[in-house]
């Protein structure tokens, strides 16, 4: 299970030019706001098409500009949790969680496991507007995992929740990582949050990967 990428995407202020490979386990994607973290996720997930370069997941080419390959979003098998959890307002929590379940070929996780793991059993019949920010965040995470993705992307999963709940979400992500055997990339602009999750970091500054240095990071971010 690994993700390999090398791409170039021009942006208004600077070029996003990233290269790397990630194995299973959690990697913290870290950088100041506007550094290109979300665009990085969009390119991996197929939401944005890079100008040039490639993305491959488990030896399956997802994007390759030279060969004009661009696998559409829904065929990538990548779970993504957005900053604004984006639950479907007209569906119950249960239907939100099961939304992508029928599309996954390998059903490696079951609804019961996820609701237990993420403490969602009590709210399955509620609508998104009836639940708290932390519950919504966990539902969004559970919904992505229930598609049995080969890669999980979490974009600022601590943003929507207040400080007290952060430790809670961190704990859930750690628990999930013990169950899933896939690469998990977590975006955050808060280094202390990431530090609690993992020892692997990928530091993005103005569209480029930079050598990770704790002291520099604390100054710039």
């Amino acid at each position: 299970m690994s993700l390999i990428f090398d791409f170039l995407q021009p942006r208004r202020e600077f070029d996003l030019n990233l290269k790397g490979d990630f194995d299973k386990g959690i990697t913290g994607i870290f950088g100041s706001s506007g550094a290109g973290k979300t665009s990085f996720f969009n390119i991996i997930a197929g939401i944005e098409k890079p100008k040039s370069g490639y993305v491959a997941l488990n030896d399956r080419v997802l994007t390759d500009s030279a060969r004009k390959i661009h696998v559409p979003i829904h065929k990538r098998g990548i779970g993504i949790v957005f900053q604004e959890n984006l639950l479907f307002p007209h569906l119950t929590i249960r239907d939100n969680l099961l939304y992508g379940y029928k599309y996954s070929r390998e059903k490696r996780v079951k609804l019961d496991e996820i609701t237990d793991l993420l403490d969602l059993s009590g709210i399955l019949d509620s609508k998104p507007y009836q639940i708290s920010g932390g519950e919504a965040q966990r539902t969004a995470i559970g919904r992505a995992i229930l598609t049995s993705p080969d890669l999980l992307l979490l974009d600022e999963p601590f943003n929507a929740v207040d400080y007290k709940l952060r430790a809670n979400i961190l704990d859930y992500i750690k628990r999930l990582n013990g169950v899933l055997d896939i690469p998990v990339l977590v975006i955050s602009h808060d280094f202390s949050d990431l530090e609690k999750l993992t020892k692997n970091f990928y530091f993005i500054n103005r569209g480029k990967r930079e050598r990770f240095d704790r002291d520099i990071c604390f100054q710039c971010c």
């Binding site: 939401i47 829904h74 993504i80 479907f88």
Partner: peptide, 27 residues
């Protein structure tokens, strides 16, 4: 409609037509 909801639907495995039926139409 927040178009990101449709993107979210596609990241969960639904194609454009399924997204239109399951997300856009009810909304």
């Amino acid at each position: 409609i927040d178009q990101k909801l449709e993107v979210a639907s596609m990241t969960l495995g639904a194609n454009k037509i399924e997204t239109f039926i399951r997300i856009t139409t009810p909304l």
